[in-house]
Write a protein that binds this DNA or RNA. Structure first.
Lengths: 192, 192
DNA sequence: TATGTTATATAACAAACGTTATATAACATA
DNA sequence: TATGTTATATAACGTTTGTTATATAACATA
């Protein structure tokens, strides 16, 4: 074998992630990573074939961070938990959020489509959503996802005042959820 | 004076806009513009101090295009007109929409803050919104802006199927508007 | 016609980029 | 100890970028 490894794959991804967190994914360069590591570019090319391969790894890391946030939120309501996680990610990693949401990368699309049926299942367990058909649940879910996305983008863009806490945004989110559900409930009973 | 002007300021901005429309603002380069004009970079530097100055002009052009779309929508309801304009811009200029919305440029913020009081005024004229206090109108407006932004981002990201027309998205938007207004109306009458 | 101005073309510069060739040195193994 | 392997550093290559120095040519004016 050769000499001891001073710069492992994970450290390299860490450094690249730190750069992306502040400057955005597109501003990752080999030399910046090397500078942050205190090395040359050589260790990077030993661990990754080229920049594209490393970027793939960075995106995987970003997604895992966002899922880590999601796993930390578990106050019972899967809806609001997801909303809180999304808002946290948008606020704590605003640059990455915009990089991820505003480019159409297949990761997000795949992830979304995988989550949808699962969310519908969760909604069917929710007593507050009892009596709704699957199609109605889908409509409610769509509206909520739209609202959550808009709120997250606004948060990431710093459109809310500085002392605006996540809880304040969560209040808006759940208020909108109530609006949607209440309205759906009413238009349902109207035809009964 | 000198020789005839072959490449005027507007043509240069046009060329840069075309590039930005397809490749994004960050992919504008002096040489690409020159190629599109069929010139060298010299005419560009005669008309603009540097790339930054030209980019400012391009952003102004982009905003004017989006306002052009808004002025074309005037079916009566300022709310839905704005929503339709936003959706059209997001769909017809998806790259530019993401460039504009996902960077926090002061233009959008200024524009937003200028429009808000005007929108509130418009809402006060709306018979459907009669009886609401200004604070309640502000809450309704915020929710609608959030929803409209989320829907526009989704549209720009191509998250809806190809045969999804603007009218389909408008239906969702106005349905959400009804949800919000109806719910606000109900929680108002509850305490009367 | 001669002169000054300026729109344009060309070519070069420096900087930053991804990538790679080369050298060095550390480690495992024979 | 000698050898092969490999992690790392250095430096260079080619490309692309913004910018600029220089030359040319067209036009207005004296």
């Amino acid at each position: 074998m050769g000499p001891k490894i001073k710069f492992a794959k994970d450290q390299i991804i860490d450094a690249a992630f730190e750069i992306a967190k502040i400057e955005g994914i597109d501003n990752i360069t080999m030399r910046k990573i090397a500078d942050k590591l205190g090395s040359s570019v050589a260790p990077i090319y030993v661990n990754f074939k080229n920049l594209d391969e490393l970027m793939e790894a960075v995106i995987v890391r970003i997604i895992s961070v966002s899922q880590q946030l999601l796993s930390e939120e578990s106050q019972g309501d899967p809806f609001l938990d997801m909303g809180r996680a999304s808002l946290r990610f948008a606020m704590e990693y605003s640059v990455l959020f915009r990089d991820l949401v505003l480019k159409d990368n297949h990761y997000m699309k795949d992830y979304d489509e995988k989550m949808l049926p699962e969310l519908i299942k969760e909604m069917q367990k929710d007593p507050e959503l009892e009596g709704f058909a699957v199609d109605e649940l889908k409509t409610i879910l769509l509206k909520m996802r739209v609202f959550q996305l808009g709120l997250s983008v606004m948060a990431a863009n710093g459109l809310f005042s500085k002392d605006c806490k996540i809880q304040d945004l969560m209040d808006i989110l759940s208020s909108a959820a109530n609006d949607v559900i209440l309205s759906a409930r009413l238009s349902k009973s109207k035809f009964k």
